[in-house]
């Protein structure tokens, strides 16, 4: 495989940019859905009534991350076929674990005596959750979302393999036509997207972290 600077510049400036938004969507939509599932489930699993399911549910999330997204797509292929939405589903399943795990960890780290005092003052279970436990654990939850975001940014490249669009299309075109410049350009953009997401979410995380925890 050879490398021509001119083609590389063209790949960076013309071929890849149209896929940036597509790729970002491919990260943010699964991330949003995964958060909408894993966060409430994580909260429920710390409530006395559901605590006994924690082991089972977490091993499902664990499997979601251990099984490669492509295998997930293969499993769902008979029902969903190929394309954008199967890719979104596979990426969502992949992103669940860090968010759920950090939700559990964040809630578990709320000091016992703080919850105890809140209860002793006559706060209801809902008030304790919404006014004490969640504010105190949100920074940890955010860092789980960040981990998932960075993970998904990379993995989303595979979506192109099943017709799911994204920056992966550039990379796989490069592989198919033996064009190093395309592979490199696609990889660089995915890297930039991952770093950018990391920066933005780190900023949000810091905004959420109250001064006493820093």
């Amino acid at each position: 495989m050879n490398f021509e600077l001119e083609r590389f510049v063209e790949a960076m400036l013309d071929r890849s940019p149209p896929y940036i938004l597509e790729h970002l969507q491919l990260v943010l939509i699964p991330l949003g859905i995964a958060t909408a599932i894993a966060f409430p489930v994580g909260v429920l699993l710390t409530r006395p009534r559901f605590r006994r399911y924690t082991g089972r549910v977490m091993s499902i999330f664990n499997a979601g991350q251990t099984i490669p997204p492509l295998a997930v797509i293969a499993v769902f292929f008979p029902f969903l076929g190929l394309g954008y939405w199967p890719a979104v589903i596979a990426l969502t399943i992949y992103a669940l674990l860090p968010i759920a795990r950090n939700t559990l960890a964040g809630l578990a780290a709320v000091p016992r005596e703080v919850k105890d005092a809140a209860r002793g003052m006559g706060m209801t279970e809902w008030q304790i959750l919404s006014q004490v436990e969640l504010p105190l654990s949100l920074p940890v939850v955010m860092s789980g979302i960040k981990t998932s975001a960075v993970l998904t940014a990379g993995t989303a490249a595979l979506a192109a393999l099943v017709g799911g669009k994204g920056m992966g299309a550039v990379i796989f075109a490069g592989i198919n036509f033996f064009r190093m410049e395309l592979i490199l350009a696609g990889t660089i953009y995915i890297g930039i997207i991952a770093v950018l997401l990391d920066r933005v979410l780190t900023f949000v995380e810091e905004k959420m972290t109250p001064s006493y925890m820093k």
Binding site: P111, E113, P210
Partner: peptide, 12 residues
């Protein structure tokens, strides 16, 4: 009124 042994002020 309850003064708990470990104090337990809400840190946030």
């Amino acid at each position: 009124g309850y003064v708990i042994q470990q104090i337990g002020l809400l840190p946030h």
